[in-house]
């Protein structure tokens, strides 16, 4: 990856993180930890990989993205706003009465949201359906989906995993945000899903295990798909990434920062953004 592209993507991720905090703070509730952990994957998808355009959100030939871990909606909304689907200022209406930006993504209210999600496991199945539909019609779009590691405790995830491999959905790429924390604590202590790479491999997937904050690794993994197999990219990530006091802290799964915390987070994120002031 060229240095200029790398800096551009890191800037987009920093902007996404800044908007996540802006949204969750103004909402007074929401899920900052798991939104921050997937910001780099979201930046890569929306600003490098996916063939999508804010000018035509319903283009039948567009690539699809399904946020199966729907509670990370602030990360999706931030990416969509930066991509031009709606004004970035609107992130401040997140979760408020009358807002398009529902607590979990709604395909009928937010342009660019390809599937309503929120109940874990269901987005993964829907992504399989979109990929299968393309196999039936011969459409050339690619389907991307993002799951949580805690989400893998849902039985439906494994039903869908079996389905995707059975129907050879090589037009489907899944990311699993392996941030290792869920509401009740350490994922491995609540209900150990490990080893996720071996499990998906056993289910017939092509599997990569990468640092989910490293764009070079994300790019290499995304382009490493093989014919007739769905691709699973397990992203080793830090929950709360980018805000020092939220990093690896389970308490920030589903809690909004109060004003002093918000100010501290903004200070850190603005400083990070400052690094990319010259980046176009």
């Amino acid at each position: 990856m060229e240095q200029s592209k790398l800096l551009y993507l890191r800037k987009k991720a920093a902007q996404i993180r800044r908007l996540i905090i802006e949204g969750v703070y103004n909402a007074g509730s929401g899920h900052p930890g798991g939104s921050l952990s997937c910001a780099d994957v979201m930046a890569y998808l929306y600003f490098e990989k996916m063939n999508v355009s804010a000018a035509d959100p319903q283009d039948p030939g567009r690539d699809r993205f399904v946020l199966s871990k729907g509670h990370a909606s602030p990360a999706l909304y931030a990416a969509l706003a930066l991509k031009g689907y709606f004004p970035a200022e609107e992130i401040k209406t997140l979760r408020k009465l009358g807002s398009r930006l529902q607590g979990h993504p709604d395909m009928h209210t937010v342009p660019g949201v390809d599937m309503s999600t929120g109940s874990l496991g269901q987005g993964f199945s829907a992504a399989c359906g979109m990929a299968k539909a393309a196999k039936i019609t011969g459409a050339k779009y690619h389907v991307y989906t993002l799951l949580g590691d805690g989400e893998s405790q849902e039985g439906e995830v494994w039903e869908a995993a079996m389905f995707a491999a059975h129907y050879k959905l090589d037009n489907l790429t899944a990311f699993l945000d392996y941030n290792k924390l869920q509401i009740d604590g350490d994922v491995r202590k609540v209900m150990n899903p490990d080893p996720l790479d071996e499990k998906f491999r056993a289910f017939g997937w092509e599997v990569r295990f990468i640092d989910g904050h490293d764009f070079r690794q994300i790019e290499a993994a995304v382009s490493s798909g093989v014919k007739d197999k769905p691709l699973m990219i397990i992203c080793d990530t830090v929950k709360g990434k980018g805000v020092s006091f939220m990093e690896n802290a389970v308490g920030w799964h589903g809690k909004a920062p109060k004003q002093p915390e918000y100010e501290q987070a903004v200070k850190e994120l603005d400083a990070a953004l400052q690094e990319f002031a010259e980046v176009e």
């Binding site: 199945s125 829907a126 979109m130």
Partner: peptide, 15 residues
């Protein structure tokens, strides 16, 4: 459960 989820995904593409 997966059948209904997949059905939703297919329908979301217009079929």
């Amino acid at each position: 459960q997966n059948m209904i989820g997949v059905a939703a995904g297919i329908a979301a593409t217009g079929m």
